[in-house]
Nucleic acid binder design. Sequence first.
DNA 1: TCGTTAGTTCCGAAGTTCTGAACTATGGGA
DNA 2: TCCCATAGTTCAGAACTTCGGAACTAACGA
Lengths: 117, 117
Amino acid sequence: MRPFVHPAIEDVQPEAILHALSDPNRAAIFAKIMTAGCVEACSAVSALGDRVIPKSSLSMHFKVLREAGLIRSERHGVEMRNHSRWDEVETRFPGLLAAIISAYAADAGTGPCRSGA
Amino acid sequence: MRPFVHPAIEDVQPEAILHALSDPNRAAIFAKIMTAGCVEACSAVSALGDRVIPKSSLSMHFKVLREAGLIRSERHGVEMRNHSRWDEVETRFPGLLAAIISAYAADAGTGPCRSGA
DNA sequence: TCGTTAGTTCCGAAGTTCTGAACTATGGGA
DNA sequence: TCCCATAGTTCAGAACTTCGGAACTAACGA
């Protein structure tokens, strides 16, 4: 198990952020980390809405979020703690994350029935 | 050649917008349509930076932007005219497009050497 | 009608994502 | 110390997506 890789904030690319958040599952995970401040384990988000995401997929989603520069993961004993890097990303790309999160929220409000988020 | 399909603005999904703009080529095309107000033909954007994009890829990129609800295309004789749907998208997801476009602009300013946009 | 220009569609190659199975790492209890 | 349980990662193959050349359609002008 190699250690986690987190890009420096100046290496964070807008396309990576958009790609990471263009998946509704990942956007829901990120929103959860945002609102909770810190999510203690993958298992805490393993069920988004009514759908269970396999561990391996979840691990991959966290990796994508991490490599996009959106979250910071640390191992604490057997678990992983994930913190959002909102402040850093906000400094680099002002308003971006807020606009994306509120777009998903707006869509959840108007759409037919969206399980996640 | 089937006619162009444009989603109603209430059917536009944030994930489709993020996916469409998570490709730097498409983001550059969209930025070009935005700044020009209207782009007269695919050929007008066929060279983004120093890289020539094949016609078929360009056609696909326009299709993705169209189906994401970001642009409106009309055939005028032999050419296609593309307008941005900024106002509609802005009403539905306030601040989203501005944040994305300015994130790419910020990145172009700090990054090593970005050809497009 | 023919040639040109503009764009779309098709289809195979290349790349990406998803997921179950096997694996690694840590902590706790006997 | 050993063994087990829990948490997460890695691997590999299947499924899906994207790319790009070739062939096609559609409109226009000579």
